[in-house]
């Protein structure tokens, strides 16, 4: 899923400083699961904004809405019909959702309420961690299901570097060294001999380095 964090409250207040009526829009997908932008967070943020502005003597009207999927035009378009009278739309979906809403709501300011962080998993209740960078050429078959692109701080393909210690990445104590994990799994499956193969330089053109990416399925187009 896509994992995001809510922007600092003051930053959000700054963005809507001049507004008197806004629409706050959440999303029912990833950001609901990572508790950053679902219906619950929409309600919470809306009342925080109202309270703060009221206390400052400049009340603001905040309407709430949570779309099934902000990154899907089918739902994003439904917003367009209800935008009369708003000064801005504050979206607390991921960056993709914010952008599709912006495309849909031409002529209206669309503001991001979240910082979109990464593609990851729920490690435990309340803990999410990065797993994939969408490099476009998956190597998990060669790295025992552990991604060196996303999980090694240096995206090393022939690791581990000289900073790996006690299973931790040199960067931070709370981050496991991806290459320690890979070696552990190679050992567990009796495949350590595979370690000797040198991984060649990657073709990053399949990644963001090749420019913005697009996927087209001709057979699905209507």
């Amino acid at each position: 899923m896509i994992v995001a964090d809510r922007k600092p409250f003051d930053e959000i207040m700054g963005m809507i400083e001049s507004c008197e009526r806004i629409l706050l829009v959440g999303c029912n997908e990833c950001v609901t699961v990572c508790a950053a932008g679902g219906a619950k967070e929409v309600a919470l943020l809306a009342s925080q904004i109202r309270m703060k502005r009221k206390a400052g003597g400049r009340p603001i009207e905040v309407d709430e809405k949570t779309l099934e999927r902000q990154c899907d035009p089918e739902y994003a378009k439904s917003l367009a019909e209800t935008l009369e009278g708003y000064d801005a739309v504050l979206s607390i979906a991921c960056g993709c959702g914010v952008q599709l809403v912006a495309e849909t709501c031409q002529g209206l300011r669309v503001l991001p309420g979240l910082n979109t962080r990464f593609m990851g998993v729920t490690e435990e209740h309340g803990v999410w961690a990065e797993r994939c960078q969408g490099c476009g050429d998956c190597v998990l078959d060669r790295t025992c299901g552990i991604c060196p692109v996303a999980r090694c701080a240096k995206s090393i393909m022939n690791g581990p570097c000289g900073g790996s210690q006690n299973g931790e990445c040199e960067l931070r104590h709370d981050t496991p060294c991806a290459w320690q994990l890979i070696i552990d799994r190679l050992k567990a499956s009796g495949e350590l001999s595979r370690y000797g193969e040198i991984a060649k330089p990657r073709d990053w053109s399949a990644s963001r380095d090749g420019g913005p990416r697009k996927r087209i399925r001709e057979d699905m187009k209507i």
């Binding site: 393909m157 900073g163 040199e170 960067l171 040198i198 330089p201």
Partner: peptide, 26 residues
């Protein structure tokens, strides 16, 4: 490989890591 930029005086820098040290040797 080089120390990660977060240890230095420009922690906000973008890192490259296009190739790794073994690949550079090759």
């Amino acid at each position: 490989s080089g120390d990660h930029q977060s240890f230095g005086d420009h922690p906000g820098a973008k890192n490259v890591y296009d190739v790794d040290s073994t690949q550079l040797i090759d």
